[in-house]
């Protein structure tokens, strides 16, 4: 019993539990210039990533939606990590994070931004079914970034 709960703490680290309880940058973003919706039809998780981009930099970022603790915390920590970063760095960080979850390689790529707090998701790799939960917000971020700059934000 105690073993399995300790085991679970590798997945559900305190930082993850905290961001699940109190997600940061959660809600609408009036100044959003880009947005994308992501969903995981198998488990019903939904996330919307909103970006305020200015001259190749993420001036502001927010997310909305509902999902499990892993996907909620991942979205929350992602917004914290990316606020103020350049779009280029955000894309690099996506790859670093993706590698962390799929190959477990946590060495930061040369010239890439550091994982920082995002390293708390290292334990997710041991739960293959949950990797998609942790990457949902990130894939949605890339979809939002790939939106054409002049494309109006959908408000449906």
């Amino acid at each position: 019993m105690i073993t399995s709960m300790n085991d679970l703490r590798d997945l559900y680290q305190e930082v993850i539990l905290d961001h699940n309880r109190q997600p940061r940058n959660f809600g609408p973003l009036a100044t959003a210039s880009h947005r994308a919706e992501g969903s995981n039809p198998l488990c019903g998780d939904k996330v919307t990533v909103l970006l305020d981009l200015d001259a190749g930099r993420i001036r502001d970022i927010a997310f909305q939606g509902a999902g499990c603790a892993i996907s909620t915390a991942s979205a929350s920590l992602m917004t914290e990590a990316l606020k103020g970063q350049t779009v280029e760095d955000a894309r690099r960080l996506f790859h670093v994070f993706h590698d962390l979850l799929t190959t477990g390689d946590i060495r930061d790529r040369e010239g890439s931004p550091e994982l920082g707090k995002l390293a708390v998701f290292t334990g997710v790799r041991e739960y293959p079914m949950r990797v998609k939960c942790a990457t949902l917000a990130w894939h949605t971020l890339i979809a939002a970034l790939d939106q054409k700059q002049d494309q109006p934000v959908s408000t449906e």
């Binding site: 679970l8 488990c43 999902g67 499990c68 892993i70 949950r130 939960c133």
Partner: peptide, 10 residues
């Protein structure tokens, strides 16, 4: 406040 997938994993 606990998603079913988290319950399933626990």
């Amino acid at each position: 406040r606990i998603h079913p997938h988290d319950v399933g994993t626990v």
